[in-house]
Design a protein around this nucleic acid. Structure first.
Lengths: 210, 210
DNA sequence: ATTTTTTTTAATCAAATGATTAAAATATTT
DNA sequence: AAATATTTTAATCATTTGATTAAAAAAAAT
C-alpha cells in the first residue's frame, strides 16, 4: 500500500534480484517443488520481502512464467513471420537460434511443458503471442510448397512439430541421454552444436520423403 | 509390524487399489504437487491406510516411478535387441508401439522426464534396465549401416534421439499443440495415428540425407 | 537536523500436509 | 463360538510453508 504511487523511479535492484532468483529456482524445480524460502535465500533477502514485493508465490510465478514463455515465443514468431527468408532458411534459423537459446537456458523447455501439462487455472489461455503462429509466413510458405509438390506431407502442423521435436526434445531428455549414452556435459553440448547443421539437412530430406 | 510375516498370500486388492490411485495422481501432477490425501481419496480409502501399506509418500512414489520406467523401457529393449528384424523394421515397431503406448498413457513421458530433471537423490542411477540399450542389436545394426554407407550420420545416438523425439515429443507438447493448432483430442489422436506410418518414412529419408 | 517515506527484518500466524496412534471393525483360525 | 490376527478408520501430532505484522533501519524530503 506504500507502493503504487506511480511515476516513481524506485531503485529496482531488489525487485529484480528477487525475480532473477525466482527464475532460477522455478525453472529448476517447478512451481510445486519450489519454496518461497528457497527463492528468498537464492536472492539473499528475507522471506517477508518477497511477499512485500510480489504479494504471493503465485503472482511471482505468473510473472516469471509469462516472461519465460514470451522470451521463448518471441524469437519464434519473428523468424516464422519474416517474409524475406525461404522456408528452408527459417528451418535453419529456428534450429540454430533455438539450440543456442536452450543451451544457454537448458531448463526452459521442460519447465514450460511440465507447468503447462494440466493447465491449472487456465494458464495457457492467458498466454499471449501464441495464436499468430498458425497464420505466419512460415505456414503460408509451407502451404505453397505442398501445392508445388515440394513437400509430401500436407499437414503443416506435422512439419512444425517435427522441427520443434528435433530441436527441443534432446534437451528435455538430456538426463536420460547423458545416462544411457554415458555422455557428459561437454559431449552433449557438442552433439547439440552438430544438430544445428544436421536438423536442416534432415528436415529437407523429410520434406521430400514418401 | 503385523505385516512382514512372509509367505502370506494376503488379499492384495487394497494395496493394488492404492498403487493404482497413486499412479493416476503422480503421473498427472508429479511428485511435489501430489498430496497423499489426493491419492487416498482417489483410492477411496483413508489416509492412514496409505502410510500403513507404504510407510511414506516417497516410498510409494519410488515404487510407481520404478514400475513406470520399467514399463517404458521394457518394450524398448525387447524391440532394440530383436535379432530377426532389420533396423528399418525396428524403427517401425518403436514408432508404432510407442505411439500406441503413449496414446493409452499420455502422461508418462512428461512425468518421467520432469521427475528426472534434477535427478534428486540419484533416482536415475538406481533405475535398472537402461544400460543395455547402448549395446543392443539396434546400435550394432546402425553401425553396420554406417559402414555400408546406408546411413550418413555416424553417431548412433543422434539417430536414436531423432526417433524418440519424433515419437514422443508431440505428446509432451500436446497442450501447446492443442492450443496453437486449435486441435482437439480426437484430431490429436488422429495426427498421432498418422505418425505411426510417417515416422518410419521420415527416418528412412533422414538416414540418407547429407 | 528533523520529519517523512521507503526498505528491510525478526517474529509470528494459520493452513496445509506427511505421518502416527490407538481403537474399532472385519476376517481368520482354533 | 471364542480367540487371534488382520484391516480400516477417526483423531491427532509435528513439521513445513505461504503469508502477515509491527517495528527497526535506511533513505529521501523538508
Amino acid at each position: 500500500m506504500t507502493k503504487g504511487k506511480k511515476a516513481k523511479p524506485i531503485d529496482t535492484t531488489t525487485e529484480e534480484k528477487i525475480k532473477e532468483a525466482a527464475r532460477v529456482v522455478f525453472l529448476k524445480k517447478g512451481y510445486a517443488a519450489t519454496r518461497t524460502r528457497d527463492i528468498a535465500e537464492e536472492a539473499g533477502i528475507n522471506l517477508a520481502l518477497l511477499n512485500y514485493y510480489f504479494r504471493s508465490k503465485e503472482k511471482l510465478f505468473n510473472i516469471i512464467m509469462l516472461e519465460t514463455v514470451n522470451g521463448f515465443i518471441q524469437t519464434m514468431t519473428t523468424i516464422l513471420n519474416d517474409e524475406k527468408s525461404t522456408l528452408e532458411k527459417k528451418v535453419e534459423l529456428i534450429a540454430s537460434n533455438y539450440i543456442d537459446f536452450v543451451l544457454r537456458e537448458p531448463n526452459i523447455p521442460i519447465f514450460m511443458l511440465s507447468e503447462m501439462r494440466n493447465n491449472a487455472d487456465g494458464l495457457l489461455e492467458r498466454m499471449p503471442v501464441i495464436q499468430p503462429i498458425l497464420k505466419s509466413t512460415f505456414f503460408i510458405q509451407h502451404q505453397d510448397y505442398v501445392a508445388k509438390g515440394k513437400i509430401t506431407e500436407p499437414n503443416p502442423f506435422q512439419f512444425f512439430l517435427n522441427l520443434l521435436a528435433l530441436t527441443i526434445f534432446p534437451f528435455i531428455s538430456s538426463p536420460l541421454v547423458k545416462l544411457i549414452g554415458g555422455v557428459n556435459d561437454t559431449q552433449f553440448t557438442k552433439m547439440m552444436q552438430e544438430r544445428k547443421k544436421l536438423i536442416p539437412v534432415w528436415i529437407k530430406a523429410m520434406m521430400k520423403a514418401k
